[in-house]
Nucleic acid binder design. Sequence first.
DNA 1: GCCGATTTGTCCGTATGTATC
DNA 2: CGATACATACGGACAAATCGG
Lengths: 252, 252
Amino acid sequence: MKFEIGSEFMPKSKYQNIYKDIKLKIESDEYAYQELLPSENTLIQEYSCSRNTIRRALAKLVVDGYVQTIQGKGVRNIFQPVEQTSYTIGGIESFKESSIRNHKIGTTKVLCFTELAADKKIASRTGFPVGSELYYLQRLHLLDGKALILNHNYFLKSAVPGLTPEIAENSIYEYIENTLHMTIVNSKRIVTVEKITQIDEKYLEMDFEDYNCLAVISSQTYNSDGVMFEYTQSRHRPDYFHFQDNAIRKTT
Amino acid sequence: MKFEIGSEFMPKSKYQNIYKDIKLKIESDEYAYQELLPSENTLIQEYSCSRNTIRRALAKLVVDGYVQTIQGKGVRNIFQPVEQTSYTIGGIESFKESSIRNHKIGTTKVLCFTELAADKKIASRTGFPVGSELYYLQRLHLLDGKALILNHNYFLKSAVPGLTPEIAENSIYEYIENTLHMTIVNSKRIVTVEKITQIDEKYLEMDFEDYNCLAVISSQTYNSDGVMFEYTQSRHRPDYFHFQDNAIRKTT
DNA sequence: GCCGATTTGTCCGTATGTATC
DNA sequence: CGATACATACGGACAAATCGG
């Protein structure tokens, strides 16, 4: 009886609940933009917890770009809502999850589903060893009926056994986590800009005259056994591509 | 994430020193790839510190994508060196800083240096209030003599007084931090893909037939007073653009 | 310029929960 | 089941930065 990925109400840890609560208050303007939040000591009383717990919650909000902390002063709300659907650095989300988060209807079409062994070319591109048995998929993601992302997925067969086109049409991550009980840990990603291909043009319905390239996110994803089980190249329509990030400058 | 600017060896806080030390051991293969690091308890003895301190150091390495922690098992080294060919981005870095980090010779040409007040159009694009007194600069960044990045910088005059073309040619961040003693805190960035303009074409020396768009990083940067003092649009040659990231799966 | 109050940053010790083997 | 290892939580102490008197 464990977690459902999509479900909102997982019994979480205390600091994560506090994090979520403060985040909500910021988003709902309960804390004003540019103002200081209540001090840590105040929050400790408010949430009946230790200072450590408050600080962990605040640390997450810093990473999210919601607040900035200034020693001797306080914690300032610097949250400003973003207007578009966006990918956020620091998290791994399936297409299904981000669709839900953005309140859009996401659908997935499987264009191609095959099995293959990694040759030298595939190996060097994906990072899988030569000879690895892989699933290779091409999938098209549509948001509110519009084709936005063309994915080339490579999954390690030994790590993700029993993958089917039906699963691929719904959510592979759901299958991996809820059925296979594999734990996805982290993902190394690289964003580049590449020339458009014929396949892109065909499925993403782009006007060649308009854009001749698109945004590409290449990612290698690891599970808790340290095995890289997925390599994916996500090709995004440039006019809908939007990758968000918050960077923190370290003070000497 | 990435750290200090000039001086390499500041005797910083304890956990940061430990972080740095473990990072070095990982990079130098003292800890083998895919192997588990010594347990937290072992590290506590090794560094003569508390568990908290070790965990803070490890947490940073997780964010960096150097290790993954698995409850009940240990901490695995998943660091793989990057095939560092191109200009990479991470954290808040000035062009000068990242040039040094990549062992390349970076130069900057100031194409335009003016002062202006934000009208409605500029305000909505940059996020500055209408009427703000701004410096507007166009700068071209070259790496080993090749034009790679065209920057449009907007600086709040009241926050960055006394800016000159000479400073802009060297390093504005150096001026801000070392002369003005302003503390840069965080930066919100958005990566998009945009159509090429005539200015881009002229200065980035791109072949229009080849690529008709480029990678754009728009960023709003804040100081410790919570003031957004900079809006910058960095336009990157797509063939040299390379944005790295490590994402961590959260148990939402 | 100094001092004290407030606030965040760092560090320590301990206890308990939970996952792996 | 027990041993080990990481995750969460609590409490206390002192340092460092900010601000107002």
